[in-house]
């Protein structure tokens, strides 16, 4: 794995254990500033666990993690808050606040950090909703009144509410129709270009890997077994990678046998 000049996330030798099973075992990973990193691996490999470990929701047995050059284990409360202000997270299940409306969900982090007029808050909320491909009329609905794909989109709008520098997306396009997923990839690209956004995206969507991601990292046996561009992945001889990128579904996406 090549050393990045300016890693925004730097994971070194991280081990995470639940009971007797090691989910992550001495994992190293760099995410470079301004890139879209696609993170793949079999179901249950520990992609969500790694995401949650980086964010600090899952305690690690050993190893170190730096985000924006700050080691979150050693950071004080104010420093940690500063980091939290600069990232946005889309959880696999959406994790919207069920007793708040869509409007309140999106405005919640903004109110916490910025003193804005209600008018600007509402306008920004609508702008975010339109950006993630929703109609503004969902603004006063509760999460239980939304479809699965709409929940994903609202959760993304909330993750982007403060225009973060870094976003963690846990399977953002699962549950979206293919056209919506394509628009989503496009949106992530646009945001990366314009805002210099860095994206850590866990995904199973081969289309996303092809169209949106700059680099791909593969998780297996608790480690990153490969990292590189999509071309590197397709050239890899690793059995899982071969069946992943050359399987029936992959051929359908690339359009070549």
């Amino acid at each position: 794995m090549t050393e990045a000049a300016d890693p925004i996330i730097r994971v070194r030798d991280v081990t995470v254990q639940f009971g007797a099973t090691k989910v992550l075992n001495g994992l190293d990973l760099d995410v470079r500033r301004g890139e879209i990193l696609g993170f793949v691996g079999p179901s249950g490999a520990g992609k969500s666990v790694l995401t949650r470990t980086i964010i600090g929701l899952v305690p690690k047995l050993s190893g170190s993690i730096e985000v924006f050059g700050i080691d979150l284990d050693k950071a004080g409360k104010a420093e940690r808050r500063g980091v939290e202000r600069r990232w946005g997270i889309l959880f696999q299940q959406g994790a919207l606040f069920s007793s708040l409306t869509v409007r309140q969900n999106i405005q919640f982090p903004v109110r916490e950090y910025l003193k804005l007029s209600q008018r600007l808050l509402d306008e920004i909320t609508i702008a975010k909703l339109v950006m993630v491909g929703l109609k503004p009329d969902v603004i006063d609905r509760y999460p239980s009144e939304l479809s699965g794909g709409m929940i994903k989109r609202v959760a993304l709008a909330r993750a982007l509410a403060l225009d973060p520098e870094l976003v963690f997306l846990d399977e953002p396009t699962s549950g979206l129709d293919p056209i919506g997923a394509g628009d989503f990839d496009e949106l992530v690209r646009t945001l990366q270009r314009t805002l210099g956004l860095t994206v850590f995206m866990v995904t199973h969507d081969l289309d996303s890997l092809h169209t949106a991601c700059d680099r791909i990292a593969v998780l297996g046996d608790g480690k990153v077994i490969a990292a590189g561009t999509i071309a590197d992945m397709q050239a890899s001889q690793h059995p899982w990678l071969r069946s992943y990128f050359h399987g029936k579904r992959a051929r359908a996406v690339v359009g070549s046998p």
Binding site: E123, I126, V130, P136, D137, I139, D140
Partner: peptide, 8 residues
């Protein structure tokens, strides 16, 4: 693409 008149 954001409309302003759409504020409910």
């Amino acid at each position: 693409q954001v409309g302003t008149a759409e504020l409910p």
